[in-house]
């Protein structure tokens, strides 16, 4: 028994307040007890703070152009230097971060959730449901992305980031969903699913309570990978005249622009890149911690 278990046990037996040790509570507890989880969460929280509170302390906004300083290295005036246009790199980076954090995290979550739900339903129900869901997945896999964009883009105006997030997610979920389907088929054969069926638990609830949690390791890894994938894919979508448009910026566009000037003006590239790496690392740490928290066989105290 690890220390944390003993603590929990004590809380339970002292009788005053019986807190039901449900999965949610135990997983949350384990997540925040792991160093990885705490660090990852703290760093990500800091990033959000930086992105949204940062502009308040900076005198430049991302649309401002300092016509006295083009392509200047970092200085007291421009903390991260300036771009060719005279924009303040710090302001622009933070603006990009706001967009990318939200878009990246949300798109990753949405795409993984979609993959999980579609895959699990296809794998659990088989037959007719499976056939139509598989068909849909395959269709989205083979159809080139720009074709879908061409069809869908007239339906709404650009700049709505919610729509944009959904679009991004739509490009990311298919492969995972196929893997999930395969795994769901095998989970369905497991005895605890039989047990739940014989208990009278409705199928949809079995999927959400038993099938998907048992694929959580895969899903969490997938979601973590999708965060960076989403941030970068967003760049390529911008080429289609879709998503983040100038003068607005995102990590994607900044990195694309910055890489061209990185050699002689490193500040245009490295700050953005560094923040992206830190973000992705934090997300990875959280993902690892979350996976361990979900997985009962993982080592407890580290």
């Amino acid at each position: 028994m690890t220390l944390s278990d003993e603590e929990l046990a004590e809380e339970l037996t002292d009788g005053t307040a019986y807190r039901a040790p449900s999965r949610l509570r135990v997983v949350t507890g384990r997540f925040f007890r792991s160093t990885q989880g705490r660090i990852g969460f703290a760093v990500l929280a800091l990033m959000f703070l930086l992105a949204f509170a940062g502009p308040l302390v900076n005198r430049w906004s991302y649309t401002d152009k300092d016509l006295t300083a083009f392509m200047r290295p970092p200085s007291a005036d421009h903390w991260f230097g300036t771009l060719q246009t005279g924009s303040d790199v710090f302001a622009v980076t933070l603006r990009g971060m706001q967009k990318s954090l939200i878009v990246g995290l949300l798109a990753a979550l949405v795409s993984t959730a979609l993959a999980a739900v579609v895959g699990a339903f296809a794998g659990y129900f088989r037959g007719w449901t499976e056939r139509s869901l598989t068909w849909l997945t395959d269709l989205l896999l083979v159809l080139p992305a720009f074709l879908i964009l061409a069809i869908i883009s007239p339906l709404f105006g650009s700049g709505q980031w919610v729509v944009f997030v959904i679009m991004l997610a739509l490009f990311l979920w298919m492969v995972t969903s196929k893997i999930v389907r395969g795994m769901a088929i095998s989970v369905k054969e497991r005895e605890f699913v039989q047990a739940a069926r014989y208990m009278g638990v409705p199928p949809v609830r079995i999927i959400f309570r038993h099938v998907i949690p048992n694929l959580s390791s895969l899903l969490i890894v997938d979601a973590t990978l999708n965060v960076s994938a989403a941030i970068l894919t967003e760049t390529s979508l911008s080429y289609f005249g879709f998503g983040i448009q100038p003068p607005d910026v995102s990590f994607g566009t900044l990195i694309a622009d910055g890489s061209r000037t990185a050699v002689y003006a490193p500040w245009t590239f490295w700050f953005v890149a560094g923040l992206l790496v830190v973000t992705v690392l934090a997300v990875n740490l959280m993902g690892d911690a979350l996976r361990d928290a979900f997985d009962p066989s993982a080592k407890r105290s580290r």
């Binding site: 449900s22 005895e191 605890f192 047990a195 739940a196 949690p213 048992n214 959580s216 997985d295 009962p296």
Partner: peptide, 11 residues
Amino acid sequence: ASLDPRMTVHD
């Protein structure tokens, strides 16, 4: 095999 490995005994 018949107990969901990802659930606490309570659940």
